[in-house]
């Protein structure tokens, strides 16, 4: 019954786990992608396991609800997909410096504006986390007891959220003005003084991935049609 997920699992191993291992970020990858996907993964598992329409093979009966084998299979398929998406995105964040991304985007002709938006959104997250941590430290310095109690910690975090987001938006706005003051929106092309090195093995890997993507889409479409 698990035939449907062997392919996707293999793909996750090959395209996410193996590169993460090679880059030495596997531990961070697992931690971050679990944190990101756990809530949605749990709900997807429960909903599909117990409420899959038309499931025949009953595995477990809990009062009015039943878990079916078909539901389990579908839930696992969804889980692998979530793993693939979150793993790939996390791997990208863990292995790509925002600065490299922006410079490379510009080198490939993407407008400086778009590149800046990409960079700002990537950089804002760690900045927000840092700001939140500092405000939390200041709260503790003013007597908020967070040690030991999860609920108390949450009580401290809730009022921080607003100012942290507003503060970060303010910071981006200020950075935008500073860039503007240095001629950011000047028309015409720019001279790049530096760009990230691009080895031939990276280029081969990239083309390989693009070909694989085309092949997978092709196979899916052919499968559907045939």
């Amino acid at each position: 019954m698990l035939g449907g997920i062997i392919g996707p699992v293999g793909l996750v191993l090959l395209a996410v786990v193996l590169p993460a291992l090679a880059a030495g970020v596997l531990r961070g990858l697992v931690r971050t992608s679990l944190l990101l996907t756990l809530p949605i993964a749990i709900s997807a598992l429960l909903v599909n396991l117990f409420f899959f329409p038309g499931g025949q093979q009953v595995l477990l009966r809990l009062g009015p609800i039943t878990a079916t084998a078909e539901g389990l299979e579908f839930a696992l398929e969804i889980l692998v997909r979530i793993m693939a998406i979150s793993g790939a995105i996390t791997l990208f964040y863990l292995t790509t410096r925002p600065q490299d991304l922006v410079v490379d985007l510009e080198r490939r002709g993407v407008s400086a504006r778009v590149a800046f938006v990409a960079n700002a959104s990537v950089q804002t997250v760690p900045a927000m986390v840092e700001r939140a941590q500092q405000i939390a430290a200041a709260q503790r310095a003013r007597g908020l007891d967070t040690e030991g109690s999860f609920l108390r910690r949450v009580r401290g975090i809730v009022p921080i959220v607003g100012p942290v987001i507003l503060g970060s938006i303010g910071e981006v706005e200020e950075r935008t003005l500073a860039l503007e003051a240095r001629g950011f929106t000047r028309p015409g092309s720019r001279t790049l003084l530096w760009w990230p090195p691009d080895s031939s093995s990276q280029r081969i890997a990239r083309w390989g991935l693009i070909l694989a993507l085309v092949a997978i889409i092709g196979a899916r479409v052919a499968g559907r049609l045939g």
Binding site: R140, R142, G143, L144, D145, E147, P163, G167
Partner: peptide, 21 residues
């Protein structure tokens, strides 16, 4: 704990924006 120490030691941070919420 920090909360216990805060009863006798008050620390004002350098950057007010990292304190005010």
């Amino acid at each position: 704990t920090v909360a216990q120490l805060a009863r006798s030691i008050g620390l004002v941070f350098q950057d007010p924006d990292r304190q005010i919420f």
